[in-house]
């Protein structure tokens, strides 16, 4: 089964979800708008040469981030990829601490030495983002195993892409997580392309979910640009994990932003890919659904958009004023201090 994102102009809003009141629905929209506004500002800051290295925006995949994160308790845990600023923001790292980290400033969440691909704040349950494709997946399994060891009922979400689903560590984790029934929910953002290689050339089967099923793990495939569908599938997986019923995988079909990263040079004109993701842009689509469900009028939704943009701009402005780490700080945090 493949569930590709529906184009905005063809999307038919289904019945209004009965388990979400107006505040919750507007909350989902607000989450998506905050991620979009932050990433728009990130791309702008990158183009202004304020962000070194590269950066991988979540633009176009906000419905996955918002839908999935909305199912968590504050003490649940998240591991994500370099395309993970959205998870960081929605799990509770401030836009300013994210933006400052991307700009490698001392006020960044990781003191400005991790940068765009290495964000972490375990105090809010965002364990780590990671720059090695699939490198964080077994780690997420281990974090879930630790929940078991400690006897908590926390759940771990692990985000990754279709590229990671080709790596051995993904398969090893499917096996180990299933053997030990750890409280892990694997969320695959299948955006159809790994840098430049399309899934048609890299995936032996159309659905990555089949790989989880091959290990006896429950798996769903959803339209990743529909936050309600993502939320329903991830919510069911989280409930299973919390009840001690083990791991699940949710594959969210989506369409990537115009480039792999803001730095990417190959592939010529990104215009075609831009048209592709904008055709299925989850924000106007969800806005239309809210309107159809009579949840929030245009002024309310505009206000949410404006507040999100204000937050992102304020974060950027504050980050730009913060200092870079002092040269001597390069020697800090190589090792954790040992007890005297």
């Amino acid at each position: 089964m493949t569930t590709l994102p529906v184009p905005v102009d063809e999307a038919q809003p289904g019945p209004r979800p009965t388990d979400l009141d107006a505040d919750a629905l507007l909350g989902l929209y607000r989450d998506m708008a905050r991620v979009r506004a932050l990433e728009d500002q990130v791309v702008d800051a990158f183009n202004a040469q304020l962000i070194p290295g590269s950066t991988h925006p979540c633009i176009g995949v906000e419905a996955i981030k918002a839908g999935a994160l909305s199912t968590l308790r504050p003490d649940d845990l998240v591991l994500a990829t370099y395309r993970g600023h959205g998870e960081c923001l929605l799990k509770g790292i401030s836009a300013e601490a994210i933006m400052a980290e991307l700009m490698c400033r001392t006020t960044g969440v990781n003191k400005g030495k991790g940068g765009s691909m290495h964000l972490s704040d375990p105090s809010v349950g965002l364990v780590s983002t990671n720059a090695i494709v699939a490198g964080h997946i077994p780690m997420a399994g281990g974090v879930a195993k630790a929940c078991q060891i400690r006897g908590t009922d926390q759940v771990v979400l692990c985000f990754f892409g279709d590229g990671a689903a080709c790596e051995g560590e993904f398969f090893e984790t499917l096996n180990m997580a299933q053997i030990w029934r750890v409280p892990l929910v694997l969320i695959c953002e299948n955006n159809g392309v790994a840098i430049s290689v399309p899934t048609a050339l890299s995936q032996a089967t159309p659905d990555i979910a089949d790989r989880a099923r091959g290990f006896g793990m429950p798996a769903d495939v959803v339209d990743g640009n529909d936050p309600i569908a993502v939320r329903a599938a991830v919510g069911a997986a989280v409930a299973r994990a919390r009840a001690g019923e083990g791991p699940s995988l949710v594959e969210c079909k989506t369409v990537r932003w115009e480039r792999h990263s803001a730095f990417s040079a190959g592939g010529g004109d990104p215009g075609e890919q831009r048209l592709a993701w904008q055709r299925v842009d989850p924000l106007p689509r969800f806005r239309a659904a809210l309107t159809a469900w009579d949840v929030g009028d245009a002024a309310t939704l505009d206000e949410i958009d404006a507040a999100a943009r204000d937050e992102a701009l304020a974060a950027r402005t504050a980050a730009e004023k913060a200092p870079h780490p002092a040269p001597e700080s390069i020697h800090e945090d190589v090792f954790a201090p040992t007890a005297p």
Binding site: A146, E169, M176
Partner: peptide, 13 residues
Amino acid sequence: SGTIGFGIGIAVS
């Protein structure tokens, strides 16, 4: 790889 990765996840917890 999975063994060390799980070990890291346990340890960072």
